[in-house]
Design a protein around this nucleic acid. Structure first.
Length: 273
DNA sequence: ACTACCTTCCGCCATT
DNA sequence: CAAATGGCGGAAGGTA
């Protein structure tokens, strides 16, 4: 099989290999991979119907989509192709802000290296966290990559492993101005408040309210440093609601009020300019 | 600065 | 039987 990157891959089996497979992984395909042969779609579909676990990497999601396996399911793909995926397969709930997603037996992942994260997740699913960690160590990769592909991923080092906590976090990032109470987040994660806070803490090491506050603080700090918006506006847009609350949060977290943070940033700007 | 009030967090235990 | 889940209540800490 020729690839677009100058080398070829020797395959030792044909589609019949899918007959007994427990897990089928569809890699990304290039533009000249279209249209995907019917027999390929049939083979993947048959495997899924037989109960096999089906996964995709990057644009491999389009193959699963074409096979109809993603209908009604949540799925992701490389961010660059997310819109296209959604346009082509309207019944799919595309979430572009994710490294990988598992919806029942169907797993999808984002751009190429996300396939490694996906694989580790599969291993963890089958053999437990210990084994997954050992494999990651041997491969010299991170076991749990932080966040999604969103612009916030670098801001918070939260690395939830379960899908539900992920979606609660995604919800929080997108709805910063909302109250984001434990109850509200629990709803987004489809868990009871009690169970949610327990799971959240287990996976991220922080409590829900703290995580939300950190999310707000990071965002507000960036806005203070990089824009000239009035404090009142920033406070409202980051969910602090009023500047007094934001000010207190800043003092708690940074030891300095918003004004000082901004002034210091300006000093640094001038010095480096 | 102070107070009454509210939310969060978390241990504990019953239930699923 | 082990693990996941839900409910309760009090301490801690934040808010109006």
């Amino acid at each position: 099989v020729p690839t677009e990157t100058g080398f070829s891959v020797l395959v030792e089996h044909g589609l019949e290999a899918l007959h007994g497979a427990d897990t089928v992984v569809v890699p990304g395909i290039g533009d000249n991979g279209w249209p995907v042969a019917e027999e390929v779609l049939d083979a993947v579909r048959a495997a899924a119907e037989r109960g096999a676990r089906v996964a995709s990497i990057c644009t491999g999601a389009f193959v699963l989509g074409a096979a109809g396996l993603l209908d009604g399911r949540r799925a992701t793909t490389h961010w660059y192709h997310a819109r296209d995926l959604q346009a082509r397969f309207p019944k799919v709930k595309v979430e572009e802000d994710r490294i990988f997603i598992s919806d029942g037996p169907v797993w999808t992942s984002a751009g190429a290296t996300a396939g490694v994260d996906l694989a580790l997740a599969l291993i963890e699913n089958d053999f437990g966290a210990e084994v997954a960690r050992a494999v990651a160590k041997k491969l010299v990769v991170y076991h749990r990559r932080a966040g999604g592909q969103s612009q916030f991923s670098a801001l918070l080092e939260l690395e939830p492993k379960s899908d539900r906590i992920q979606s609660a976090l995604t919800y929080a990032k997108r709805n910063l101005t909302s109250k984001l109470t434990v109850h509200e987040l629990a709803d987004a994660a489809h868990l009871s408040p009690r169970q949610f806070s327990r799971a959240f803490h287990a996976e991220t090491g922080q409590s829900p309210a703290k995580a939300v506050e950190n999310l707000r603080l990071e965002t507000a700090r960036l806005m203070m440093e990089q824009t000239r918006h009035p404090i009142e506006v920033i406070a409202r847009q980051t969910g602090f609601a009023d500047r007094d609350r934001m000010r207190r949060a800043f003092l708690r977290a940074f030891g300095q009020p918003p004004q000082v943070i901004r002034r210091n940033a300006e000093v640094v700007d001038k010095a480096s300019a």
